[in-house]
Amino acid sequence: MSMRTPLKNVRHLGSAKEGTTHWWHQKVTAVAMVPLFVIALAYVISLVGADYERVRYILSLPFTSLILLLLIGAVFYHMKLGLQVVVEDYIHAESTKVVLLMLNSFFCAIVGLAAALAVLKLAFGG
């Protein structure tokens, strides 16, 4: 039997043992995405109606790769954190919740890495 009071258990980093880290990372990625989104939107609009050669050329420029990789990193991390909260809020059966949280991590990692690889391939040719 634990001699600790319930208050002692939630002090410092709280019962989840991560304090405000989740919330803070959500905020940092949110702020990062604002300027990245504006630049990405300018790219998208400039590519409207462009042929394949043009699209390929623009996507091979170093600045494009930099913006896209930063955006992909922020987007998929933000997405993982956000979807995690949705699962935690609505799914109360412990086993289902754990499975869904894992699938969420896998999904975000796979799609995010696939997008990043595509950007790298566009950057380095091949």
Binding site: V55, R56, L68, V111, A114, A115, A118, V119, K121, L122
Partner: peptide, 9 residues
């Protein structure tokens, strides 16, 4: 968007 990037690559 990922589909679009992969297709472009």
């Amino acid at each position: 968007l990922t589909w679009w990037l992969i297709a472009a690559a």
